[in-house]
Every structure is written in structure tokens, then in C-alpha cells.
Design a binder for these strands. Structure first.
Lengths: 214, 214
DNA sequence: GTCTATACTTGGATAGAC
DNA sequence: GTCTATCCAAGTATAGAC
């Protein structure tokens, strides 16, 4: 927010905020559709039907706009995720929810935006750490969710939660990346299927660890 | 090879091949150092100390050069991987080797090249499927390796090998992507550590499944 | 705050000399 | 086969009018 220009109050402020919002929204759309490299000031301005100069007036430079776009989808998806896992207490249930939310992500394009930003980070000096900052909440969220799920099971004392969470996030990103390569989403579906089957097999092996595992 | 120009024999052919090799080598270097977006014809030509026009003479367009570069690292790394897992027959051993080879990958930059190409695929129409083609051998390799490791264990009839292999490859890519974001490689190390610990825990749980698990 | 116009830069790709 | 010179397109960023 440091460099954000604009009047501090009045009708101009409202107008400015609305424009800003439109630009961010347009940036999200373009990021999903055309990827990082396609998200130029020109393209975003066209998508949002605003003049190209406004982008630099409001955001200074394109990468900062794209970060704002990432923040926007991120916070929207985080809410969905929190709601989705709220009632979950066992691992098979979590996997089921994960598969469902993953499908929504594919549709909403949020992971695509994140993956594109990560990809683009290698081209813009200094962007990497800013992306890391924005991934950390997801690792924490995953860690909390895993903690809730394994607490009370024999697994609890042994599972390194933080590392497991990092692994899950990395896997999610990797799957998304691969899934978008040839446009088919069959790969991800297959992975979730396989995961579910493994879960129902390992539940018993772990000594009826999962409360919902029947 | 269809569009490859050049004389079919003689001294000119040798000269041409050498130039071609230099360009590919330079492309690999630039891909590792600057990423996909930084791998322009200009940058590669400078790195290889050849004229920029030669790149188009030999490869037609930049993406085709970059694919050749990917093929080059890929085949080099595949040999290393095959040698590394040749003697492995149990899961903990495999994980140990995986950690070691991953470190070499980080140093050699091969996964970085792959990750960059995947990232870049979203910007170049039609590139995606060509990358998929080049990932398939890695999934097959992983699948074969996993098969060798679980055969004879109680896990064998239940583990969906193909999906597991896809998951491993996706995880590898995701970890690489995240690791390169802020330059630290501590994350990956932590993951391998955690994996090893989990393995030594689960070996007994699975009924002394692993021959080397003591 | 927003728009139009424009300066400047980079990179893909080709032409023609050697 | 290789080099130099050049054209053209796309994109960032700024200036100045409204």
C-alpha cells in the first residue's frame, strides 16, 4: 500500500477504487487465460476496458499489479477452503474434500494463477520472495488441517506436520502444472482416485486410525 | 529431424554439427541461469559466441531450440538416474538415493530446465504436448523403479503404480519450483528427511515389508 | 483520475554478403 | 554455413491534454 496514489476521500476516491478493482479483476482473468507472459499491461487494459496508462498510475509496474491479482484470488479461495474443511476430521474425508475443491480450483483457475506467478517469478528479479510470502499462508493452512485430521490417531506423534504440509502444497502445484500441459485433467482425477483407494487400504493397517474409516 | 538443414556429409557437416552442439549447450546454460523467458535467441547466441542468425538457420524457431536443449539434459540425467537406482531394491534405500540424486539435480540444474519449459509452455501455443511427450519417459522410469521396489512386499497388489509414479514426478516438479523461488534448498532437504523418517516408521507397520529395512 | 500519443527497448525473424 | 544488417511486432513506461 505504500506507493498507492489517489485522494484520501470523496467521490474521486470511490471512482478510483472502482477502477482499481476492475483492473485487478481483469488481471486475474488474463492471468488465468493467457498466463504470466500474456498478462501484459496492454492485454489487461483491454480486458478491463480501461486505458493502459491507468495501470501504471495505480500499480506503478505490471508485476505489482499481478501480485495484487494473486492476492485477490488467493483470499477468495482461502475462504472456500476453510469452509470446505471445517467439518472434516478424518483422512479419507479430507481426501474426498480435497478432490472436490481441486475440481473447483481447476474451474476457478486459482491454482493456475498461482502456478503462472511462480513460473513468471524466474523472469522478474525480486519477485520470487514475494510469491513465497503468499504461499506461506497456504502451507500454514494445510498444516492446521492435517493437524486436525491426525490428532488422536497413532500417526500423530510421528508425522512431521510442517514438512507434510509443504509436500502437499508442492504436489498440488506439480499436479496443476502437469494437468495444464495438455489440457486434460484426467491425470489429477486418477491421482485422487488412487489416493482414496490407498487411504481405505491403509486405514485398517494403521489400526483403525480414522474415526470415519468404519 | 524433419526440418534439419545442412549437408549430408563432408567437412561442412562436421562443422555444422559442432555449431549445433554449441548452440544447444548454450541454450541449456541460459535456460538454467535465466529461465525460459530469458532464453532469447540473442542471449543464447551470446552465451555460445555464435551469431544470432545461426539459431534460426539450425532450429527454425527458438522454442524448437529449447526443446532440443531439454532433450539434451533429459537424456544426460536419465542415464545418471538409471545408474543410481540400478542396485536399489527397497523403499528406504530408494528414498536415500532420491535425496542424493535430487541434490545433484539441483546442482546440474536439470529439473530447473524442465520446470522452466513447463512454465514457458503456457506462453507458446502447441508447446505443451511436446513437453508432455518428454515427461512420459520419466513417469515410465519412475513406474519401473517403483515396481522393482514394491515387488514382493504386501504393498504390491494394492499400489497403483502408474498413478504413484505420476504423483512422484509431480511432487518432484513442485518441490523444485518452490525451492527455486527464494533460492534456499532447505525445504527440499526437510522433505527428504521427513520422508526417510516416515519410511522407517512405516516399514514395521507394513509387516517388515522391506528387505533392507532391518 | 483518466485518456491519447509517443519515446524507447527488446526480441523474433529474414536478406544478402561472404 | 556463417556473419552483419535490418525490418517488424510487442511491450513498458512517461508526458501532457482534459
Amino acid at each position: 500500500m505504500v506507493a498507492k496514489p489517489g485522494p484520501k476521500s470523496g467521490a474521486g476516491r470511490r471512482r478510483s477504487d472502482e477502477t482499481r478493482r476492475r483492473i485487478v479483476e481483469a488481471a486475474v482473468e488474463v492471468l488465468k487465460r493467457e498466463g504470466f507472459a500474456g498478462a501484459s499491461a496492454v492485454a489487461v487494459a483491454a480486458e478491463g476496458r480501461v486505458s493502459q496508462g491507468l495501470i501504471f498510475y495505480h500499480f506503478g509496474m505490471v508485476p505489482d499489479l499481478l501480485l495484487a491479482a494473486l492476492d485477490e484470488t488467493s483470499s477468495r479461495r482461502m475462504e472456500e477452503y476453510r469452509a470446505a474443511v471445517a467439518g472434516i476430521r478424518d483422512l479419507p474425508g479430507l481426501l474426498e474434500v480435497a478432490a472436490r475443491v481441486y475440481r473447483e480450483d481447476l474451474a476457478s483457475g486459482h491454482i493456475k494463477v498461482l502456478a503462472e506467478m511462480i513460473a513468471g517469478a524466474s523472469t522478474v528479479p525480486g519477485l520470487g520472495p514475494k510469491i513465497v510470502q503468499r504461499i506461506e499462508p497456504w502451507v500454514r493452512f494445510t498444516e492446521d488441517t492435517l493437524r486436525a485430521v491426525v490428532s488422536g490417531t497413532p500417526l500423530e506423534p510421528f508425522l512431521p506436520l510442517h514438512e507434510a504440509a509443504q509436500g502437499v502444497v508442492a504436489l498440488y502445484l506439480g499436479v496443476e502444472l502437469l494437468a495444464h500441459l495438455d489440457g486434460e485433467q484426467g491425470t489429477a482425477e486418477g491421482l485422487f482416485d488412487a489416493g482414496s483407494r490407498l487411504m481405505s487400504l491403509m486405514g485398517p493397517l494403521l489400526g483403525v486410525a480414522y474415526r470415519g474409516g468404519g
